[in-house]
């Protein structure tokens, strides 16, 4: 059994979307290195509730790194110091006894803070609604190998499909750009045969919606791929840029 830790937390507290927030300091005592980051916050919250105070509000759902709900910036890094992991899968063994940990919500104009660490990320949903789908005639499920897909294309599509829509890429980017997210969605469908009929329309619609939401513009810093818990590669952004050029060249913007 490794030793328990005592930590100082500085957490962004904000009553609601209309209020101003500020950093508040809390002590997290007897934190086990085996706890996840969110379990550590659960313990702090139980303590706050017992004292009759408002617990720290944060988003979480699956707590196994697959849903994309958890979202907090730990010491300036979205999802914390461990690369390729969501904050729900970040364990306290990555911290030392006596550490001070700053915890903040995602920061971007399209992600307004609703309360404490919870932001409204429906801007990402609207981008998906704009074009992140394929249209299929319903009916019986087609035979498994009716559509041949090369191993290379299916592997690459899977790498893009790994995106869980958490928004950490936006939170990390100095420009609050959503390009990694959009490129993952566009790349995932654009690599597969089912995605071809709507390929040009999809790129055009999704980029237009992304711009409308007020995200910043990509300047190729690649901070996004470094914080992405699913390690989506920024080479999908190059692919997106290429697809957009093709879509515009084919006159998609006038359709």
């Amino acid at each position: 059994m490794s030793k328990d830790m005592n930590l100082t937390l500085k957490v962004w507290r904000q009553k609601d979307q209309a209020s101003n927030g500020k950093m508040e300091t809390y002590q997290a005592k007897k934190v086990s290195p085996d706890m996840s980051f969110l379990e550590m916050l659960d313990v702090v919250n139980e303590d706050l509730i017992q004292k009759g105070q408002d617990p720290i509000a944060f988003d979480s759902d699956c707590r196994e790194g697959i849903c994309g709900t958890c979202s907090m910036v730990v010491n300036g890094v979205p999802h914390g110091p461990q690369r390729g992991t969501t904050v729900c899968q970040l364990h306290m063994r990555h911290f030392k006894d006596g550490d001070t940990i700053a915890i903040e919500p995602w920061r971007a104009r399209p992600f307004p803070v609703l309360k404490d660490l919870i932001t409204n990320r429906s801007a990402l949903d609207r981008i998906i609604q704009a074009g992140g789908y394929i249209s299929v005639s319903t009916g019986n499920a087609p035979a498994a190998n009716a559509l041949p897909i090369s191993k290379k294309a299916s592997d690459e599509a899977m790498d893009a499909a790994a995106c869980i829509g958490c928004g950490a890429c936006v939170a990390a980017c100095k420009n609050a750009s959503a390009m990694l997210f959009v490129s993952a969605k566009v790349g995932h469908l654009g690599l597969l045969p089912q995605g071809q009929p709507e390929r040009d329309k999809r790129v055009w619609k999704m980029i237009s919606q992304m711009d409308k939401e007020g995200f910043g513009n990509c300047t190729n810093t690649y901070a996004c791929e470094s914080v992405c818990p699913k390690r989506v590669s920024a080479s999908f952004i190059a692919r997106l840029n290429r697809d957009y050029a093709v879509a515009v060249a084919k006159g998609e913007c006038d359709r």
């Binding site: 500085k10 962004w12 950093m23 910036v73 010491n75 300036g76 890094v77 979205p78 700053a102 903040e104 920061r107 971007a108 104009r109 399209p110 803070v113 990390a172 100095k174 420009n175 609050a176 750009s177 007020g214 995200f215 910043g216 513009n217 300047t219 190729n220 810093t221 690649y222 901070a223 470094s226 914080v227």
Partner: peptide, 22 residues
């Protein structure tokens, strides 16, 4: 536009994994 896209800055504003040149 990029500045406007983040009206509230991070308190720990370290722009992780972003190199000096960019």
């Amino acid at each position: 536009e990029n500045r406007a896209a983040r009206p509230v800055k991070y308190v720990v504003n370290k722009q992780p994994y972003t190199d000096f040149a960019s």
